[in-house]
Amino acid sequence: MHTIATPALWFVFGLIVVIALVIDFVVLRAGGTHKVAFKEAALWSVAWIALAMLFNLGLWYWLGGHVSAEVANETALQFLAGYLVEKALAVDNIFVFLLIFSRFGVSAELQKHALMIGILGAIVMRAILIFVGAALIQRYHWILYFFGAFLIYTGIQMVRAPNDEGDFESNPLMRWMRGHLRLSKEYSGAKLSVVKDGVRWYTPMFMVIVLLAVTDVIFAVDSIPAIFAITEDPFVVLTSNVFAVLGLRALFFLIAGMADRFHLLNYGLAGVLVFIGLKMLIADVWKVPIGLSLGMVALLIGASLVASRFLPRTD
């Protein structure tokens, strides 16, 4: 797989992610089971965004000194576009997380623990999917057309069913867990299972974690092909994805109280998916400039947010 990254760059990226996760875990443990306030979530969101931009700046500087200014500029724009796309699509992911937490009655104090575990699983799963996707694209270039058509189909489905919340009771995974595991109806703090009278019971938190993981995999199937439309370099795809996911917990609490204000965001996200899908389909005829891609993503998301502010919700 062709990439601009050297072993040293991979090492630095991995080290930054490990340090960031350790700090996040330490802060999480020190804070205890408290409800995350809007101000705290906003500060953490700014910190995660700043970390991503600093990494991009460092990557740009390194490439400018070791490769060329042209490659440095192109890669920095690709990272920024990938980060923006992933961040935007993560908002739709968060709405589903809200539904899961509401359905299982997860308290605000326990939600951050569930999200932290979900983020770790998301990083591992996305890394696997990205390397598999990069290998497939390198060997079968035509798969990009499949990705493009799939993104267009997904975008159209989001418009046709913008309020599809899913039925957790009829979910095959839920039915399997109910049929094969001893499931407790009571929470035991952040524990995933408890032992009662020598028998292990799985708490509702276990079901929540499983559903969060499955939901993230489903959304990754959308977001990862979308970033491959921007760049096929696995290093840029993985780093932009991971840095966007690292801020997912803070972003969740930042918008959790404002979900109703973004009732038209699905249409903006659908527009992004359709645009990127079309970009993939015409890639061999015309390669859409990164600057134009950034502008279109920002325009579509921004327009849906503004429209949500001024147009009332209807049945």
Rank of each mutant, 00 (worst) to 15 (best):
L300T: 00
G189F: 10
L238R: 07
I230S: 10
L136W: 13
G291F: 04
I23V: 07
G268D: 03
L294Q: 02
A244F: 05
M296T: 03
A134S: 15
I282D: 05
K196Q: 12
Y61H: 14
L278Y: 03
M258G: 04
P7I: 04
R103D: 00
L273K: 12
L136I: 00
V236R: 02
N56C: 12
V46L: 14
P312F: 11
A149T: 08
P312R: 12
V46Y: 11
W176H: 10
T154M: 14
L28N: 08
M174N: 14
F168E: 11
K191L: 12
I19W: 12
M116K: 00
A5S: 14
L281V: 06
I100V: 13
F104S: 05
P312A: 07
I152A: 11
F95T: 02
D197M: 01
V85K: 09
S170Y: 07
L57H: 05
F101R: 09
A88W: 11
F206Q: 05
I49K: 03
M174Y: 11
A5K: 08
V18A: 15
F97A: 08
P289E: 03
P172W: 10
F101P: 11
R182N: 15
L77R: 06
Y140C: 01
V214K: 07
F147T: 00
D164Q: 13
G105C: 05
L264N: 03
K35N: 04
R313K: 15
T231N: 09
G189K: 04
L136T: 01
T154V: 07
